[in-house]
């Protein structure tokens, strides 16, 4: 859906649902999700419909995903780090031990 204007500066690798994808250090996780296909970050807790980053500034909470094991992370406010594990969040998160 989106593409980088230039080749990646300081390339790192993150894993989106287990798939290795290239990213740029310090860009937001949401920006990386928007370069994947299909684009979505989570499913809504009521209807389970797909949601994608919408506002990119921490207002809408539709870009929530599980980042390095922490569910409901606002990916638009979370900078990418090498080796980061990103899981799209499906419905209500679980905290069952």
């Amino acid at each position: 859906m989106f593409r980088k204007l230039q080749s990646l500066d300081e390339e790192v690798t993150v894993y989106v649902d287990g798939v290795a994808v290239p990213a740029e250090a310090n860009e937001s996780v949401a920006a990386v999700l928007l370069r994947q296909s299909p684009v979505w970050a989570r499913t809504a807790p009521v209807s389970c419909s797909r949601r994608a980053p919408y506002c990119m500034m921490g207002v809408c909470f539709d870009c929530l995903a599980t980042v390095d094991g922490i569910a409901s992370t606002q990916t638009c406010l979370t900078p990418v780090r090498d080796g980061m594990l990103v899981l799209r969040q499906k419905g209500r998160r679980s905290v069952r031990p």
Binding site: M1, F2, K4, Q6, S28
Partner: peptide, 23 residues
């Protein structure tokens, strides 16, 4: 709420902070 719908502000933030545009 559909993926594919975003705000213009969001798109501009992607350009500023990530250097990316719609393909």
């Amino acid at each position: 709420t559909l993926p594919g719908v975003m705000t213009v502000g969001a798109a501009q933030i992607l350009l500023k902070s990530s250097g990316q545009i719609p393909d």
